[in-house]
Amino acid sequence: MKQAIRVTVFITALCGIVFPALLTLFGQLLVPDKAAGSLLQQNGKFIGSELIAQPFTSEQYFHGRPSAVDQLAGASAGDNLAASNPEFITKINEQQEQFKEDGRSLPDDARVTSGSGFDPHISLDYARAQVNRIATERDLSPDAVRRLIDKEAGNNQYVNVLMLNLALDRSQS
């Protein structure tokens, strides 16, 4: 019994206190910004995290993927609807009908919810489908908007919505 208690206390101190404390310390020393959650600042205020999706509804901004959660409240989850669930099938069909952009069919990632509810990215297809709306709203040429997308996406097939919208704001300031 004595052995069991001593070993339990020792291991708890090591794994539950020393390990996380040491890792926090090294994180703070090496990459304090990343360790704090890759937060973005503007004029001294936090405006979001590079890794976390924030909701966009204004016509002037690129919109992100649908989410099963209230992104402002912070708790994460997927919608967990099965592919065979009639509710899911009706839902994506409705979204397709509401879609007005370019008259093209809606890209897959624009119709279905993400795993976490905070997927910060959209596909290039979905971004390009929003180009005309944003160009009109902001009085920009569609080509300028397309160039921004390509620049933010780099070699990826997806682009970070928050970073793209920030770039959009910067391009007009």
Binding site: P20, L23, T24, G27, Q28, K34, A35, A36, G37, S38, L39, K45, F46, I47, G48, S49, I52, Q54, P55, F56, T57, S58, Y61, Q71, L72, A73, G74, A75, S76, L162, N165, L166, D169
Partner: peptide, 22 residues
């Protein structure tokens, strides 16, 4: 992330308040 700091409240580009758990 690796921080003992609590959730942060940020102001989104559209001016809403978003809570980010970390």
């Amino acid at each position: 992330p690796q921080t003992f700091g609590g959730a942060v409240s940020v102001t989104t580009l559209e001016g809403a308040k978003q809570l980010i758990y970390r």
